[in-house]
Simulated scan of single mutants.
Amino acid sequence: MKLIAEILVSLVALEHIYILWMEMFAWTTQGRKTFKSFPPDLFEKTKSLAANQGLYNGFLAAGLIWSMFIDDAAWSINIAYFFLGCVIVAGVYGALTAQRSIFFVQALPAILALIAVALA
């Protein structure tokens, strides 16, 4: 079960690295393809806001990756819980305020990873 937990935490971290890249470096290109319901003129105007969001996603990814390199098992689990909890809260909030699909893309994978970490 530990291996499954590590794989799921890694996948959530990789997802947030992708979000970092898209929001910080590809907002006006890949962002348009991803968020088709946004008005096209919105992307250039919100480029710096998206970059800021991308930075926060990078912090989430860094915390999840850090949790896998901590030697003390209790600390490793606690750090993973914290950052997965942050991803879950962000995903639920995004689903309630922006797009419902954010729950399935962001929160649900983190919930599954959190369960796997708890069972490991």
Rank of each mutant, 00 (worst) to 15 (best):
L20R: 05
L119N: 05
I19L: 14
A61Q: 12
I17C: 15
L96T: 03
N57E: 09
L60M: 08
G85S: 00
A98T: 03
Y18N: 13
A95L: 03
G63R: 05
I65N: 07
A90I: 08
G94Q: 08
L114F: 01
D72L: 03
P39E: 14
M1F: 08
A118V: 03
V87R: 02
L119F: 07
L60H: 00
K2M: 05
A61I: 11
P40A: 08
I19Y: 14
F103I: 04
E15C: 14
Q30R: 15
S48V: 10
L49A: 11
Q99A: 11
A61D: 10
L8W: 05
Y18K: 15
W27N: 13
A110E: 00
G91L: 01
I4N: 09
P109A: 06
L49K: 13
L60Y: 00
I115G: 10
F59T: 03
P109D: 09
E23K: 15
V117N: 10
W66E: 03
L20A: 09
Y18I: 15
A116I: 01
F83V: 00
I115M: 09
L96D: 02
G54R: 06
L8R: 04
S67D: 06
I77Q: 13
E15Y: 15
C86W: 03
T29R: 14
A13R: 13
G54K: 06
A120E: 04
T29S: 13
D72S: 06
A62I: 01
A50S: 07
L8S: 02
K2A: 10
A51Y: 08
I65R: 06
L108C: 07
L3Y: 11
Y93H: 05
L42W: 11
A118D: 02
G58T: 02
V12L: 14
F103K: 05
G54Q: 07
G58L: 05
A51N: 11
I70Y: 03
F83C: 01
L60C: 00
M1A: 06
L119E: 05
F104Y: 14
G58M: 02
N78Q: 14
S37H: 06
F59N: 01
T29G: 08
F104M: 09
G58H: 03
S48G: 00
V117I: 14
M22S: 10
A62M: 03
W27E: 11
E23A: 15
L60V: 00
K36W: 04
D41V: 04
L11H: 12
A90Q: 12
T28V: 13
H16E: 13
A110N: 00
S76F: 00
A73V: 09
V92Y: 06
K45D: 12
M24E: 04
A116R: 02
Q106F: 01
F43G: 01
W75V: 11
A26M: 12
A5T: 09
A5G: 09
W66T: 10
F104K: 10
S67L: 04
I115L: 10
P109L: 08
F82E: 01
M68A: 03
P40C: 04
L42F: 07
T34R: 15
R100E: 14
M1P: 05
D72R: 06
S10P: 15
G91S: 02
A62P: 00
G63V: 05
V9H: 10
Q53S: 06
V9Q: 12
V117L: 12
S101Y: 07
A118Q: 04
A73H: 07
F69S: 10
V89D: 06
Q99D: 13
A98K: 07
W75R: 13
A110G: 00
